[in-house]
């Protein structure tokens, strides 16, 4: 571990936490454009956060300490997740501590805490949201893990760094198994980040909401942290997608000269990914909640199939 690597890690930590709302704003702006609206601008999430932080927090009478602690746990977990994904360079000192399985574990940890917090007040919507979130999660988590495993078998490693290095820097090879994994991953990304067709982040339509139902009781700084954590989660998922399926352009360990280029590449990729996400959301329709297990089951099976293909074709 060198000083430069530590600096790089700190730089990435700061970078992700700052640009996460920007990505969210960009996706929302793209959605607005695609829907013929002018939109609130890419900086709107920052304004929302600032507004929320300045408000007085209102807490339900029977909120327990768990409820108040959850936003912080959630934020820290998502921050860690986003900070771990190699986005600009493959030289992150924290990365060996947390491999892909542990990364999935961190997402699960966050999910369990937010679901528990949702059940804490004991309202009808809270428990409903928690149940639905766990329903989506118990299928999304294995699907995500299977996507990672497909990549792991190719690179003979579960370390995210090694996976990215193998995919980005070794000889160019086409992996059909990754095609399956990519489709499954996009489905998981949509479900896990409460996007259409699984959930709609921009409505409080009672009967269909999942994520919003869970955080109904949060306000002010707590809500701000939860929202920021969601933005970080979206960023983490997007960068994981980029790292697995479009890793080119990332700087090698110790190669400082490539950093500016890698940074530019990252921004181009994030812009494109955000726009595609908005497009995907615009052209699909929200699903009935009972179709969601089917959707997630399909994602899971596709990911398993990707792994099988890897075993069968050897490519």
């Amino acid at each position: 571990m060198t000083i430069s690597a530590v600096l790089l890690q700190l730089f990435q930590d700061t970078l992700v936490v700052l640009i996460a709302p920007l990505l969210l704003g960009w996706v929302n702006q793209c959605r607005a454009w695609l829907q013929n609206r002018s939109g609130a601008g890419v900086l709107q999430p920052y304004r929302n956060l600032a507004k929320l932080f300045h408000k007085d927090a209102a807490l339900a009478n029977n909120a327990s300490p768990l409820f108040r602690a959850t936003p912080y746990i959630l934020f820290a977990a998502m921050w860690l997740a986003a900070a771990l994904v190699p986005v600009i360079a493959t030289d992150l000192p924290l990365s060996p501590a947390v491999d892909v399985i542990a990364l999935v574990g961190i997402f699960a940890l966050a999910r369990v805490f937010i679901s528990l917090a949702a059940m804490d007040i004991g309202t009808s919507f809270g428990t409903l949201g928690a149940r639905r979130e766990m329903l989506v999660g118990f299928l999304a988590e294995p699907a995500l893990l299977m996507v990672f495993f497909t990549a792991s078998i190719i690179s003979q490693s579960t370390s995210l760094i090694t996976i990215v290095e193998t995919l980005a820097h070794k000889q160019f090879v086409l992996y059909p198994s990754l095609a399956f994994a990519a489709v499954a991953f996009v489905m998981v990304l949509l479900a896990e980040n409460a996007r259409i067709p699984v959930d709609n982040p921009s409505t409080h339509l009672e009967l269909t909401m999942i994520h919003e139902a869970m955080i109904l009781e949060y306000s002010a700084r707590h809500l701000a942290l939860v929202e920021w954590a969601s933005a970080l989660k979206l960023l983490a998922y997007t960068t994981i997608g980029i790292a697995l399926f479009l890793p080119w352009g990332i700087a090698e360990a110790g190669d400082w000269g490539a950093l500016p280029l890698a940074l530019v590449a990252l921004f181009v990729k994030l812009t494109a990914a955000g726009a595609s996400l908005a497009l995907l959301e615009t052209i699909s329709a929200k699903m009935r909640i009972f179709r969601v297990p089917e959707f997630m089951g399909t994602a899971f099976l596709l990911a398993v199939l990707g792994m099988l293909i890897r075993f069968l074709l050897g490519s």
């Binding site: 807490l59 309202t123 919507f125």
Partner: peptide, 15 residues
């Protein structure tokens, strides 16, 4: 930020 906090009944979409 300030740490102001007040307790009240649960919101639950105004139910």
């Amino acid at each position: 930020y300030h740490g102001r906090l007040r307790r009240g009944p649960a919101w639950d979409c105004g139910f």
